[in-house]
Structure formats: C-alpha cells, structure tokens
Design a protein around this nucleic acid. Structure first.
Length: 607
DNA sequence: GTTTTGTTGTGGGG
DNA sequence: CCCCACAACAAAAC
C-alpha cells in the first residue's frame, strides 16, 4: 500500500466540529491534496421520525435539535462554498461507518481527516472506519479539537486515572493549546463524486415529523456564522442596550459582564435574555471552537483590572466541560449506575406515573412544569433550572432513576452532550461528584427567589397567566373563588401536585441516607478497595496520542466499557458525530452562565 | 485519624 | 447585600 501523496485525494469527515475556524482536520485536509472531499453523513437511525415518541422528532432527537443540526449543516455548506468548496451530504442506508468506508474506496481517498471523538458510540464507529482505512493504506489523521485538552493526555498525566475533582483536573491541565486560526481564501476543489447522489441540506419539514407548524421555534439558529456572531455579542458589545452610548462605554459595560461572570449566580427564570451566554448548543456541535472561545475570553480578561476565576468564571465553565469529557472517557459505564465504579448504587423507585408527569410538565408544581415545557419547546433551559428539575425527579422528590431523566434531556436538549449530560445527572442525583443530598431545591421557593411575580411561569404555562402572584408557585392553595375568576381550576385546568414536597423530600433524604450507609458497607468491608483501585487504569506505556489510547480502550473486549460501546452503537449511532454544556458547558448540557440578564451561554447539563 | 474542602440549599436574622 | 444555623456528606489534604 502506498502512503498518501499530494496526488491522491483527501477527505474531511465532519461529525461534531461543524465549523471552518480552528478546524485542524480541515486544515490538514486542505494541505494534503489538491482535491478535498468535505463529507457529512446523515444517519437515518438518528433522524427517522418516531411517532411513538413523547414529542415530535426521532427516537433520539427532538425537532429542536434536528433543526439546529440542519441549520448548522447549511451554514457549513455556505461557508465552504465561499472558499470554493462545498459540503458533500451523504445519507447512510444503515450504518454511517459503512457509508464512509464506501466513499473512501469509491473516491480513491489517500488521506482521511476527522476530529477525534471520545464518546463510546463514536469510538466504536470510528474504529470501524479507521480499521478499514488502515487496511486500505489510507492515512488517517484524527486531531483533538472538540475540547480544550486531550482527555487521554490528562488521564496519562494523572497517572492513568481520570482526575475526579475539578481542582485536581485544573491543577494538571495547564493552559490549553492555541486554536488553529490561519486565514485562507480558498480550499482545494472537490474531486469527482462519480455516481453519488449529493443531497441538498433538507429542511426539518422535509423529514416528516408530522405537523410541527404549531411548534414554537427556539431562539437558537444553528451554524458557525451565528455562533461567532453570538460569541462576539457576548464578549464585546452590540447588545440592544442603547444606541446613545459611546461604543467604548458599551464595550466597557460588556467586558465587565464577562469579567464578573459567576456561574452559580445566574437567574434561571430569565428567558427573554438568558443570564448565561447560551453558547452551549454551538459548543456541542462544534459550531464554535472551545479553544477559540477560551482565547477570546482571555483577551477580555487582559483588558480589565479584575476578573472572576475558575470554577465560577467563564473560562471555568469551559474547564468544567473538559473535566466531564475527561472523566467520562476514563470511566467504564459512565452513563449507567450499574457497573459504574464512581456511581453510588441507589435503589431508585419505579413509578411510570410520576415519571410521565415530570417529563410532560404535569407535576402540579408550576416552577417545575414551566422548566420542562421550556425544555420541550426550546430545547434549552438555564443551568439552575436544569438543576431544579433534575433534583425534583431524583433525590429531591420523586426518587426516580437519574437515567430516566438523562434520557429525556439527551433527546430534547439542543446542547445535549453525552459526557456533560451524564456527568451532571450523576452530580445532581448525588450519585457521584457531589454528595450533600440533604440540600434539596424547593420547587416553590427556589424560583420565587428570582422571579417573585412568576413571569417565567406565566409565559410557559399560559393557563396560569392570570393567577395572582401570591399563589402562582402554589396554585392549589388559591381559594376556589380566585381559581374560578382566573379560569384555572386546580385539578381540572392545571394538575394538583403529584407529590407533597414536604413529606416527599423528607422521605428522599431518609432513603438517600440508607443507600449511602449501604454503599459504605459494600465498598469497604475489608478496607482493601479504595475507589482509586476500582477505577480503570490506563498503563503509562501507552502512546500519548488519543488514537493509541482509543485503541487500548477498544482492545479491552472483556471490559464492560466495550460492551457498553457495542450496545450503544447497535442501538443508536446517534448523529454522525456526537454532542455538553459545557459551561457547562455544560448539566452544561446542564450548562451556562451568569448575573445580569444579558447575553446568551455555554453548556451543561451542558457547556 | 483529623481537618479541610467542595461551583450553584433553605430559612432566619441582620 | 452578608452571615448563620440547620444537619450533614465524601473525598482530599493533612
């Protein structure tokens, strides 16, 4: 087999990383050959409508995220065309990896470039493609560019185990690599695509999700162009503040916002102007480079006297995103309770009735229901709003398994990101990272603290719009005469509470205490096993590249992690890429950010 | 073994 | 706005 030369063609395979800026895979592709094939593969298993789903969309994604993806692809295509290229959109018949392999062969590709992805299903998918490429003599380049750092590098530096606290993560992480921001005016032309059918980017209406004309269109437009515009708006000026102010004053005001950003201090009820940057969807799809964002924040920091610091600062949010990526990469069965060594084993209860009430925004607690309705309509909620409903479902009130809530978030959040979403559910359910289960968010007073008039509730639950503010958070306490007057009878027009918070939360505390006591007995009967020794250790002899570490991971065929990968891959193969919040990124996906109501954010339960 | 630390609780007081 | 009591946890740091 011959090595790739400038005479053979190169392919850039997009999955996440839907951008031109800071794209090392694209950069390598354009230097490798005079012919470059930029490819994205639509996955029918990800996009196929599922009429049985609880809301419009596919089994794996709600309409909001599908729409965001399609918009991002259209924007990527437009930006590539401006450089004399275009996006080659293929539709997988069945398996995305098979489609990529076929194109590699048919187009006689000599070099394949794609961004490294550490999610289990992506590792399995990419291994399939990489194995094929290697066997065919195709050179493969898989740079790390979705996260600030290479998770495999961090794990190696930490002695083979992922750091399990934020502080230890930050202390070994150091400064992230510089983004690749070289300007260029054109890309190599696209080679002959033979008989391949090249699809235009479909609209969400064309995908057959039924009548979605009544669906509220979320305030997030997908794509790199919008991502960069929003980042600029968040970091600089351009706010709709006031046209009368001098520009430098605006800049000052805004930079102050950036410099003073503190994550736990945001207003979760602010929805007209989210309290965070709301950049998490863009980080999740890679429309915005986390490294570019990081550097831009540094520029602002250098222009001001004081600024907040991690973990609460804006850069701190990006580090949280990397933290969850790293832990998820080094922890087998990270997305489950069973077989997950860093997850408390808790006997969650089964109640389909309570779960459905939570999922559908029918708990009878307006603060909880409004958040779940915003999730369904927008695919995005404030980070602390995510905390409220996650706590309510799990350890706070319903005592239902965090995996059930995780699935709902994963499907509906635009910014849902596997590592960040699972990490935040582990956190909020007090299954890992955070253990103070007696601290429970009140479904009544927590929201009231930020929004005493209940404007957020009135917006997302119109039937409550005329409820006096004295009762808006507890409408079941309103006298019947008032209920009649505002045309909202509790138990008829709006549900009665499905649980009593006072007694339910007390019961949850008790059950958590019992589960914790048991976990002590389980984990420490002989004092021989520390949590460290239970964690996977990647041997220091591994090569430093993530490829080598990936290969190592995949070789553990007896390892539960591999079973997990195979399981996920067969069952889903989500996009052709994957999903943070940072700020969390993203619960990150639980994710976002801060203070005065203003700019939009970064992810958690997302980045 | 003991002390400290941990992004993001509530309710009361000032 | 801050501070405290409440009741209380695991893991890291010492």
């Amino acid at each position: 087999m011959e090595a790739a030369t400038a005479a053979t063609a190169a392919m850039v395979w997009f999955r996440k990383g839907l951008r031109v800026h800071d794209n090392p895979a694209l950069d390598a592709g354009r230097r490798a050959s005079a012919r470059l094939y930029p490819v994205f593969v639509l996955d029918p298993r990800y996009l196929r409508p599922d009429p049985a789903a609880a809301s419009p969309g596919s089994a794996r994604a709600g309409v909001a995220r599908v729409r965001f993806l399609l918009e991002s692809l259209a924007d990527l295509d437009a930006r590539l065309r401006r450089l004399g290229s275009r996006l080659l959109l293929l539709r997988a018949r069945d398996d995305v990896a098979d489609t990529v392999c076929a194109a590699l062969k048919d187009w006689n590709i000599g070099k394949l470039c794609f961004e490294s992805d550490t999610e289990p299903y992506a590792l399995a998918r990419d291994k399939k493609v990489t194995d094929f490429a290697m066997a065919s003599g195709i050179e493969v380049f898989t740079p790390v560019s979705h996260t600030l750092f290479d998770p495999a590098e961090i794990i190696k530096k930490n002695g083979g185990r992922p750091p399990l606290t934020y502080q230890s993560f930050v202390s070994i992480a150091g400064e992230p690599p510089e983004p690749v921001m070289e300007e260029y005016s054109e890309l190599p032309r696209v080679g002959d695509t033979g008989e391949y059918e090249l699809l235009p980017v479909p609209t969400v209406d064309e995908l057959g999700y039924g009548d979605i004309s009544q669906e509220e269109i979320p305030p997030f437009r997908g794509g790199e162009t919008e991502a960069l515009r929003r980042m600029k708006e968040s970091l600089q000026n351009k706010v709709d503040v006031s046209a009368f102010l001098e520009l430098h004053i605006l800049n000052h005001i805004h930079q102050e916002w950036v410099a003073k950003f503190e994550k736990p201090k945001g207003d979760p009820s602010a929805f007209l102007k989210p309290a965070t940057t709301a950049l998490s969807p863009y980080l999740k799809f890679g429309c915005l480079s986390s490294r570019h964002f990081y550097q831009c924040i540094q520029v602002v920091y250098r222009s001001v006297k004081n600024h907040t610091k991690p973990p609460v600062s804006l850069t701190g949010q990006l580090l949280w995103r990397d933290f969850f990526y790293t832990v998820s990469y080094g922890t087998p069965n990270f997305d489950r309770m069973k077989g997950n060594k860093i997850c408390k084993q808790i006997p969650w209860s089964e109640s389909e009735e309570l779960f459905v009430a939570w999922r559908d925004g029918q708990t009878g607690y307006p603060w909880i229901d409004a958040i779940m309705i915003q999730l369904r309509k927008w695919g995005w909620m404030h980070h602390l709003a995510r905390h409220s409903v996650a706590c309510f479902l799990t350890r706070g009130d319903m005592f239902i398994h965090w995996e059930k809530g995780r699935d709902v978030f994963e499907r509906l959040l635009i910014d849902s990101d596997w590592a960040i979403n699972n990490g935040n559910w582990l956190w909020l359910s007090c299954s890992s990272f955070f253990y103070q289960y007696h601290r429970i968010y009140s479904p009544i007073t927590f929201g009231k603290k930020y929004d005493p008039n209940g404007n957020y509730i009135r917006h997302f639950i119109p039937v409550l719009k005329d409820m006096p503010k004295e009762y808006i958070y507890e409408p079941w306490t309103a006298p019947l005469s008032i209920q009649k007057k505002v045309k909202c009878i509790i138990g008829k027009d709006y549900p009665k509470p499905v649980v009593d918070h006072e007694t339910a939360s007390k019961d949850c505390r008790k059950r958590m205490g019992e589960a914790y006591a048991l976990s002590h007995l389980d984990a420490n009967p002989t004092k021989g096993k520390t949590s460290n020794s239970l964690r996977r250790k990647i041997s220091p002899g591994d090569k430093a590249t993530s490829d080598a570490s990936n290969a190592k991971l995949l070789k553990c065929s007896q390892d539960e992690s591999y079973q997990n990968m195979a399981y996920r891959t067969n069952k889903t193969d989500i996009f052709c890429f994957c999903p943070q919040d940072c700020t969390t990124a993203s619960v990150n996906s639980f994710d976002a950010v801060a203070e005065q109501s203003r700019a939009p954010e970064a992810a958690l339960f997302t980045t």
